[in-house]
Write a protein that binds this DNA or RNA. Sequence first.
DNA 1: CAAGTGATTAGC
DNA 2: CTAATCACTTGC
Length: 199
Amino acid sequence: MRLPRSFYTRGDALSLARRLLGKRLVVPAGAGERVAGRVVEVEAYMGAGDRASHAYGNRRTARTEPMYAEGGRAYVYFVYGLHHQFNVVAGPAGTPEAVLVRAVEPLEGVELMRRRRPGRPDRELTSGPGKLCRALCIDLSHNNEDLAEGGRVWLEDAAPVSPDDIASGPRVGVDYAGADALLPYRLWLRDSPYVSRQK
DNA sequence: CAAGTGATTAGC
DNA sequence: CTAATCACTTGC
């Protein structure tokens, strides 16, 4: 079952980031197959007031447009000439907040993931934002898709995560954001071996 | 540890 | 139009 719209619109990006940990990210892979992973690492991007956000100062361009939609849509973009990044849009329409999914633990379709990432140990199949998009085949065609209804990627509920198991720290790769780069908006499951390397 | 890759953007 | 900038990964 897909998580409902209200799951995404209920709170801000940080609240959604916390609730996203442990949930199951699913992408259909044709012929009734699925590729799926458990979310183990995320980053919150808090919108217009967040210097690290693409939508800082309400910057509104063709790329950032999906962030302004009602929560529950996908915001996918391309960085560094070769990697895709998958984000979940949070909050009501008009607030450009989103949560970047940084790492998942492979659960379904692991064979497919191995084939898409040849020569990688299972630990490194999905342990980074670019890696997971590669393993799950998420690309620009998924941009702006509706996770709550009809989209070709979605999230499913899973066993709740205890707050004690969640660790936090500064976000990765946002040094340009000044003081905002220090905010503890990166969250991960403390004991998961599938989180990305940088701490 | 540095190169690479190309979409996106701001600045003319 | 052009140049600069990346929410990163990989192979040296």
